[in-house]
Design a protein around this nucleic acid. Sequence first.
DNA 1: TTGTAAGCGTTATCAC
DNA 2: GTGATAACGCTTACAA
Lengths: 343, 343
Amino acid sequence: MKPRQPRKSAKLSDVARLAKVSTATVSRALTLPHKVKPLTLARIQQAVKTLGYVAHGAARALASRRTRTIGAVIPTLDNAIFANTIHALQKTLDEAGYTLLLASHEFNADVEVRVTRALIERGIDGLVLLGTTHHPGLFQMIEAHQLPYVLTWALDQSGRHPCVGFDNRAAASRIANHLLDLGHREFAMISGITAVNERAKERLDGVRTALSAHGIRLAPSRIVEKPFTLSAGREGLSEVTAGRELPTAVICGNDVLAIGAMAECHARGIAIPQQVSVTGFDDMEIASLMTPGLTTMHFPTTELGTDAARHLLARLRGEKVPLLTELPVELIVRGTTAPPPAR
Amino acid sequence: MKPRQPRKSAKLSDVARLAKVSTATVSRALTLPHKVKPLTLARIQQAVKTLGYVAHGAARALASRRTRTIGAVIPTLDNAIFANTIHALQKTLDEAGYTLLLASHEFNADVEVRVTRALIERGIDGLVLLGTTHHPGLFQMIEAHQLPYVLTWALDQSGRHPCVGFDNRAAASRIANHLLDLGHREFAMISGITAVNERAKERLDGVRTALSAHGIRLAPSRIVEKPFTLSAGREGLSEVTAGRELPTAVICGNDVLAIGAMAECHARGIAIPQQVSVTGFDDMEIASLMTPGLTTMHFPTTELGTDAARHLLARLRGEKVPLLTELPVELIVRGTTAPPPAR
DNA sequence: TTGTAAGCGTTATCAC
DNA sequence: GTGATAACGCTTACAA
């Protein structure tokens, strides 16, 4: 093969020539500095600087069979839900000298397989997947490549997959129980779309379970499934309040839905939480600033990213790590949201 | 060199053997399917399927000198500011068969150089940078590697760098002029930190320019610089309202600051926009749901991502593209925010 | 501590 | 249309 396009940037052999050592020594100086004599090291570092040498990752990856890159596949980047987690993930990886390769699938299982294949093809040493429900072919692919991976934002009950997550169902039950303790009996839920999101499904199930333990059933008219958007939250609220009686407590599948629902309450002159208590998950800081005295459930979004990164990094170092890491959620009670006495 | 770790997953030569063709033909079948006989192609595709073959990107990159990966370096992922842009960027790239490699620098110029080097090392065919102000060494590095790049979220006046952005200064002037037209004369600004963010600086300058054209000066007590967080927005508002007289209009450097400022207004019983008009940039949908009748400035965050991707993709195809792409901003007037008549 | 050289899995040139 | 094979830039076993 003839040189197709002469390379313009310096390569390892250029550094070697300038420093008057072999390429092996330069390579060592770059990856195991303590294995070369300080004087030689200094000469090499000088040469690197002079030439502005930047290693060719593909060549390095091909020879070493490692990329120092971790892939992450998330449902969407379109709202802030996963921003905290991804940010923490990338920060922790960066500190360990790893790069994050990110892709999203927009809640489509086939797309998820496709983008994951793209990541594997691109070369990753480990993979972070969001949630526990995935295309079987996805796990096959991971298996075939012996790729270390971790599921996050949920816990896999089967014990087959490493997870760093929290119990969505228990969190939802807890929030429902809190509202029950306050005396609420008329509930509604604006849920995520359970068919494509097992976290949403678990939250709905958790609410249902807690309520039925008190003999309360969520009427079909009091439960709607919506995509995680503000306007869906508004719609959701108008739908669950369409009946003769208002629910006294509305539980939302996440913060985006909750904020939309609250906006609709404002628009309709429904007082929160005096008339209706709106509760959501995740980061409700904004909402609680606008509507003080809101009870919310905080998810450990940042820790999820940090711990997922740590889990993978530990495994890449060959350390043993627990299969399941369960992180605590936090119920944040900012005031009383008891049901109106009139009812 | 002996094989260090036997490879477990199938490689090109395995496919070739199974399909009874040469590796060259398999390679062709994968990248230029129309250049091989349909029958051969079918045999190869079958073999690929049987073996679950996934190409080795590093080897491919080394041989072809292309990675089909685009890098992007942004200030932060920690809030939703850039989520829209990144989402659109990644979506457009994905549709063209490219992967996004993402990194953030937390408003630190040195970190930016470091992470960019990491991206280049990992191998990228193009680079998206946010804003126009960067470490000189950064541009040197890009130059040395002849790496196609584009700056976004701002426009470089020097004409030296390809940009897909909008005019932050003009946008800020426009919002100030709108408020001036309504009769406001008492202004305050809660700005981003201008020293590390030239977009923030341009917005502040734009406001100053518009005001001084009307003989109005922003008093030092009426202007604060804050990081882009909700609590900083709250602090900012209490600081600019500490004086004897309230400003009638508060302009915020972005939506996060504005929402924080509005929360503080709520907490202090200051009516918006009746007593104070709060204005912010970017995505103020949430805020305007909570406080109807708000005037805001919408930035083309999604288009920024889409067009930046298109720009790079076109250049990678060897097409000529304009150096500067200016996207329009939009002033969204949702109601009147005239100053209170009593003043 | 350093050098030699094989090998990583593809692509692309050239010959057939 | 297909095959043989050099080359891509680096790492690492082994020799010195």
